[in-house]
């Protein structure tokens, strides 16, 4: 049957297959670490090259890095506020760069040409473990930011402006990491799947606009993730009167 054969063909995309690494009795998704090391290595090399010879009149790569730095600072400053944005700028910037590099690396590099014994290489952010790890780090960060800035007064936030808000604010603590992780995971995985299916069905021209859309989505998702993380931290350190 045609439908059935289509499904078996889809299976060639190897959705949900992983390259397992066994260390002791813990199991890891090897393909996630492989791609993330390659991409982060490239990022670090790029940054080292750009910051090797810093000058007062920026040239070449330094210009680009300064633009990036300025962009991240603006993002952190508008969301977190003038007072504490400096403490959180490296974290927000790392989230942005990590997600951006992972998304674009997953979309731009033809990983499928590299054959693995099981699973396939792709964007590290298309793995639920990565996105949950990032989202939980964001949760920890905003709790830490709130508690370290305001002490126990942080919990005033839960009954602000009225105590009626208490259950909703507690619920938010769970929905925030959930929405952060699943938004990123879903967008990137969906993009990879759509491109994969289209390449599989029509290997010429047709996937190209979808690939461009994927690049757009990837960049937007990185921006959304970093902006929301900064917004949550800003919300936690905000002083209400």
């Amino acid at each position: 049957m045609f439908f059935n054969s289509l499904l078996t063909n889809f299976a060639a995309l190897e959705v949900g297959q992983h390259l397992y690494w066994q260390i002791g009795n813990i199991r890891l998704h090897g393909q996630v670490f492989l791609t993330s090391w390659i991409l982060l290595g490239a990022l670090l090399v790029f940054i080292s090259l750009g910051t090797k010879k810093m000058e007062n009149d920026p040239k070449g790569l330094q210009n680009l890095l300064e633009f990036l730095w300025d962009y991240i600072r603006d993002l952190a400053r508008t969301q977190i506020g003038e007072k504490v944005y400096r403490d959180w700028m490296p974290f927000i910037g790392t989230l942005f760069l990590f997600v951006f590099v992972s998304n674009w690396g997953g979309a731009l590099i033809p990983w499928r040409l590299i054959k693995l014994p099981s699973g396939e290489l792709g964007a590290p952010t298309a793995d639920i473990n990565t996105t949950i790890a990032l989202a939980l780090l964001v949760s920890l960060s905003y709790f830490y930011a709130g508690l370290s800035n305001k002490g126990w007064r942080y919990f005033e936030y839960y009954v602000h402006p009225t105590p009626i808000m208490l259950p909703f604010k507690i619920l938010e603590d769970f929905t925030k990491p959930l929405s952060l992780s699943f938004r990123l995971f879903g967008n990137i995985l969906a993009d990879e799947l759509v491109v994969g299916v289209l390449v599989f069905l029509v290997p010429l021209i047709l996937p190209i606009p979808v690939m461009f859309l994927g690049l757009f989505t990837s960049a937007i998702q990185a921006l959304i993730f970093a902006t929301l993380a900064a917004y949550y931290i800003g919300e936690a350190v905000e002083e209400h009167h």
């Binding site: 990590f98 639920i128 473990n129 949950i132 790890a133 939980l136």
Partner: peptide, 16 residues
């Protein structure tokens, strides 16, 4: 599976 959560999560967090 897509939602296979294992030690990748904490290690990725440490890596980040």
């Amino acid at each position: 599976g897509l939602f296979d959560i294992n030690a990748t999560l904490p290690l990725m967090a440490i890596q980040v």
